[in-house]
Design a protein around this nucleic acid. Sequence first.
DNA 1: TGGTGCCCTGAAACCGGTTTCTGTCACGCA
DNA 2: TGCGTGACAGAAACCGGTTTCAGGGCACCA
Lengths: 343, 343
Amino acid sequence: MGNSRVTVREIARLAGVSVATVSRVSNGTGQVSEEMRRRVLEAIEEHGYRPDHLGRALAARRHGALGLVFPGLSGPYFTELIQGFESEAVPARASVHILCTHLREDSDDQVLEMARRVDGIAVIGGTISETALLRLAATVPVVVLAGRGPDTVSSVSVDNAPAMTLLTRHLLVDHGLRRLAFVGNPDGSPDVSERWAGFRQAYRELDLTPPAEPVRVAMQQPDGVLAAERLLVDGTAPQAVVCANDEIALGVLVGALGRGLRVPEDLVITGFDDAPMAALVSPSLTTVRQPIRDLAAEAARQILSAAADPHAAAPESIVLPTEFVVRRSCGCPAEAPTGGTGK
Amino acid sequence: MGNSRVTVREIARLAGVSVATVSRVSNGTGQVSEEMRRRVLEAIEEHGYRPDHLGRALAARRHGALGLVFPGLSGPYFTELIQGFESEAVPARASVHILCTHLREDSDDQVLEMARRVDGIAVIGGTISETALLRLAATVPVVVLAGRGPDTVSSVSVDNAPAMTLLTRHLLVDHGLRRLAFVGNPDGSPDVSERWAGFRQAYRELDLTPPAEPVRVAMQQPDGVLAAERLLVDGTAPQAVVCANDEIALGVLVGALGRGLRVPEDLVITGFDDAPMAALVSPSLTTVRQPIRDLAAEAARQILSAAADPHAAAPESIVLPTEFVVRRSCGCPAEAPTGGTGK
DNA sequence: TGGTGCCCTGAAACCGGTTTCTGTCACGCA
DNA sequence: TGCGTGACAGAAACCGGTTTCAGGGCACCA
């Protein structure tokens, strides 16, 4: 019992029926008499038969699997993405393959290899070259997650730029701040690139000159601490630090508090994502909420439907709305007006 | 070019050779004349042929995939695990399947289903029932990661209990503290259970009475903030908070600082893991370093070797050493003696 | 009694690879 | 010249399922 080496033909022999009948019973397809069904089920039960996925997938010509490609895993953002993706894939009986391309040179090749094992792939924006993306899309359905690809490839992202413009304008206009620093590496991901653009856009709309350069660091808390070290030197410190995500912002906050600065009195800090910690730190973090799980779930749904019907699917670019969340770290007294960038 | 529907037989027909020859060329096995090889390679190149993984896997009777089963993804611990696991799997040309069981009722079934799709599985300790674990192990090689299973199942873990005893003794003896609180849910995972046991053990070794109950919360920063709210009420606050991991400790730290407490003067806080942030917060966090990536990499190696040779593999229980890292949050002045527990 | 149609069953083909097994041919050597 | 040998190619079997297709048995009807 429970032997993993038992096959359809084995069960067929033991039950004294044909393999076709076993298949029909185990899938509930076609017409089978009560007597046959009973005999087959008995044999299946007794020997713990479960159909091998490979044989089944080969016959069905679908893998029953979805791929998810990351640059590298870091922070709550990615774990949320994975879970959102998984929440759609598993009920559809598809397994989730993940691949972290960072630190490996032949990542394009590995992604192409993955394409031979799954029914569709979601690629985080900025992870692989555009060339590889196009070759990939010629093989399996592809969705770019948090970013945009060529027009022929679907994508799911949020309205980063308008949201960041809204936030920056709040600091410039409502709080009258002028010397803002942006922390995050625009070359690292489309998300950051768009947020950096939105940040500068707010200056331009007010006929002000935006900072020329961001503080280029990665996206985790330690990188925020690092940024604080670079920024908070006597004399040249900015009035506000606009961070590319909440993780960086929390790091900057820790760095600032550790230097004896008061937030928001001495330094204003803002984030992006609305991670759970954003509401819990003191001061609570002014940020932009984005629907991370929904983002990944939407990508999974698109891939599944494209895989189910390869020809009907036209490439789609979905942009999900965000919500500006005003809390204490920008200098607002308590609860203040919040506004979304809208649907 | 790049068409994904091209098969061996197609290439064989186009090159005017047999499928056997195509297979030999594409795998570099067997003897093929220069002329044949050239013709086959040309056809492969021209039509962008890449062998389908399913057919190949079916013939080889191995999936070329490894499974990783989590309760739910949370925090840097799990992303480190995934990356450690991945770093071993990918060079071995195996893809990584992940499954988060939380929030779903039929998780045992899903894990069994995964077993039909991979060559081996690593299960995070405490994720599925012991019954399911045994049934799983009857089907594919299984390793319990961060925890222990039945004696017949391999496992990889760290020496949680001795490490936590060492840390607790440091607080009790070197700092003369008595009223310590443990934060973490021992029922949630074997790791926490062992750390809780190690914590109490330190009391017993000194003939002291340990706290009867831990503060049961989950393992992320927000849960630490929550724990701080519960613990830091006037009068009953402990002298020190011993946290099940660094994430909780950082949350408690934020909560304590937000209440105007000084750390470590008013409250001592310790963590576990030595996450990157532990060294960067002020005060820096006294904690226990554990080799998370190595843990997962070791699990992947065990699975791979067991899958390669199913009979030779005897179940193995590996316990990796940890290192006690003394920093500022326990009340030590600056750099103080550190000591490993292991090896 | 013969024909029609439905329900059920099993043989065989198929999915896309790998591998074994058989056979051909050229070459070297006695 | 005859024979053994080794290099190479292809036909066919195989991996473990699903599905098509043809046929047997039976009820129903004329």
